[in-house]
Nucleic acid binder design. Structure first.
Length: 592
RNA sequence: UGCCCGAUGGUGUAAUGGUAGCACAGGUGACUUUGACUCACCCAGUCAUGGUUCGAACCCAUGUCGGGCAGCCA
């Protein structure tokens, strides 16, 4: 099927070098990575890099990659995204790293175990053959996270603070000025324990108190100035319900979730570099028995002409600039899939961009378009379809005459299969393929010229028919039947070949012509990206296509010869009535 | 102007003290029953200045430019 030519495992990057070093040192029994999406939107091309890195590292080292929902903020998250995210990940790695996708037994939470006479907590991993499994979920660790917070308080590493949000901001200082200690910083362990328990019990309103790490208010790293660990939120959580009104923050929950799952390598994007000391501080302050996970950062993938943040993509959806998260113009995994772009294509493109710490790079979207065309050229069957038809009459054929022609399904195939096409007196050709006053080097149909109807025969131009207003209504030509394949004059050469469909044996199908969503290279850098929306990103036409396309398989991609690649939309098509989405046009070196 | 990070053709990357390579984009031509594909050729780079070294894209120093950080978001 796919001729996926993914980079061999010889390709390396700084992260693979680090992991290879650890493997050589036998530092870990098994390499364990994780992909931790927050269920607050659909996954996009940027996530694809993280997914492919995490699963790729696991795949190359006989390890595992945990899918973990990072659901510590009930105000922004929703269970409705969980299924879509899970589906997209599985689809992206299918046939490539399915074995590495790790989950846990249903309902599993961290359990106590003895390690070197010390009590440790870990959540078990389910084997891929187990029946009842589910994704790892940070909120399943809330109890254990709470207990760890108690430990932190007992060790004098955390305190309950009564300062308001604005006061905390003031006390934090600025980029240049050091911060000041909270007046509540030196509460006794007993008082902190009592207050924290009462926070959990719901005695205080939102924002009245918080649990903070006791680190260093004068640190040049803002994230070390007694950062918050827990905040009060009297709001139900999509997974834990109303059990909690106290929720941990990312910096506290993430490193410990990694630890509880036995993650060895925790990869994230560059903006978390400044958080790494905090990641390490939390883990180190708890004096944990097992080997600690470590965080490594890499640069995000930002393709040109696309938006790449969930916040912004959500706005496109909310304001109806697109039909949804899976609109074929969206850079989401679901959108690309509907567009006809396979997982193998995404993998080849994303992996091909590499992993670095260069932080200001924009990847030319043309690099992805190249992969799309290259893969589809190998796999897509060819069909004939006319987007903007103009009628052409072959005056030397009888009205009911049908001439059978043979068309090749895919010239790239080892042993190309063929199908039948019917040439009739009346056909449609692309209106772009005729010019009454042709521009220089025009190789198509023009007055007095000749052109070949693909897979049929050469035709000679006779006459142009116009209506009263001067609009072209029909083109009259003569078919040179002896130039058909196998006939005496079949090797006759003409400069142009055009596609066509029989006017009496064709189907009309709704076809969506997509173009890039934005007119500028970096819409995310725009004051307001909405002003950079491409007004022509979607054009709907009723195309005339050859009969076989009525049975197009949703999700399959076809090349409409000389036009581009089209896929039958899997949500809007119905049996016998496909709706086509244009995946991408063919490369066009002539320009028009 | 606090701290941290980064800098290789137009773009994305490789070279880890020893010939600056690959891909995309762009250009020219060949081929063509898809102006597609394919093929051939061309274009074009180590941010700057010093230093270490027989030898520096790589190590050091300084500068320049770019990015990140002051959510009870992740």
């Amino acid at each position: 099927m796919s001729s996926e030519t993914e980079s061999p495992d010889t390709s390396s990057d700084f992260i693979r070098d680090i992991v290879a070093q650890h493997v050589a040192e036998k530092r870990y029994a098994k390499i364990v990575t994780r992909f931790p999406p927050e269920p607050n939107g659909f996954l996009h091309l940027g996530h694809a890099r993280a997914i492919l890195l995490n699963f790729g590292i696991a795949r190359e080292n006989g390890g595992q990659c945990n899918l973990r929902f990072d659901d510590t903020n009930p105000a922004k998250e929703d269970a409705s995204y969980v299924d879509a995210i899970t589906h997209d990940i599985k689809w992206l790695i299918e046939g490539w790293a399915d074995e590495q996708l790790a989950s846990k037994p249903k309902g599993a939470v961290p359990v106590a175990q003895q390690i070197n006479d010390r009590t440790d907590y870990q959540v078990s991993t389910a084997s891929s053959s187990d029946a009842d499994t589910e994704a790892f979920t940070a909120s399943d660790y809330f109890d254990q996270l709470y207990n760890y917070a108690l430990d932190l308080i007992k060790k004098g590493h955390a305190f309950v603070c009564d300062l308001s949000a604005t006061e905390i901001e003031e006390y934090r200082g600025s980029l240049k000025e050091p911060g000041r200690d909270s007046p509540f910083r030196d509460r006794s362990v007993e008082e902190n324990l009592d207050l924290f328990e009462r926070m959990r019990a719901g005695e205080f309103p939102d924002g009245a108190k918080s649990l903070r790490a006791k680190i260093d208010m004068t640190s040049p790293n803002l994230w070390l100035r007694d950062p918050l660990l827990y905040r009060i939120r009297h709001i139900a959580h999509h997974h834990t319900g109303d059990k909690w009104c106290l929720y941990p923050l990312y910096d506290y929950a993430h490193c410990l979730s990694d630890y509880l799952e036995g993650v060895t390598h925790s990869f994230c994007s560059l903006e978390f570099v400044v958080h790494r000391p905090l990641y390490d501080w939390v883990l180190a302050s708890l004096d944990l028995p097992r080997e600690l996970p470590h965080q490594y950062e890499f640069a995000k993938l930002i393709p040109s002409y696309t938006l790449m943040s969930k916040r912004n993509l959500l706005r496109l959806v909310a304001e109806n600039h697109v039909s949804g998260w899976d609109d074929p113009r969206m850079p989401t995994i679901a959108g690309l899939r509907r567009r006809g772009i396979s997982a193998a294509i995404i993998r080849r493109f994303v992996i091909g961009t590499g992993i670095t710490t260069n932080d200001d790079s924009i990847t030319d979207i043309a690099a992805m378009e190249h992969v799309v065309r290259d893969e589809l050229n190998q796999s897509a069957e060819r069909r004939l379809g006319v987007l903007k038809p103009i009628k052409l009459v072959l005056t030397n054929l009888a009205p009911d005459e049908v001439i059978e022609c043979e068309a090749i399904n895919n010239p790239q195939a080892e042993t190309p299969k063929k199908r039948k096409l019917s040439l009739t007196r009346e056909v449609f050709i692309e209106s772009d393929d005729f010019a009454e006053i042709p521009p220089p080097k025009f190789r198509r149909l023009k007055p007095g010229g000749e052109v070949r109807l693909k897979y049929a025969c050469i035709i000679g131009f006779d006459e142009i028919i116009k209506d009263a207003d001067g609009n072209v209504t029909e083109l009259h030509c003569t078919a040179q039947l002896d130039t058909r394949s196998g006939e005496a004059n079949s090797s006759k050469k003409v400069k142009g070949t055009v596609h066509w469909v029989s006017a009496t044996q064709c189907h009309e199908v709704t076809t969506r012509l997509y173009d890039r969503l934005f007119t500028v290279e970096e819409p995310g850098a725009e004051e307001d990206f909405v002003t950079a929306l491409n007004p022509d990103s979607l054009e709907v036409v009723t195309a005339k296509v050859e009969p076989s396309l009525a049975e197009a398989i949703p999700g399959a991609v076809y090349q409409f010869e000389r036009l581009g690649y089209f896929t039958a939309d899997s949500t809007d098509s119905s049996p016998g009535k496909p709706v086509f989405n244009r995946t991408i046009t063919l490369r066009d070196t002539w320009g028009k």
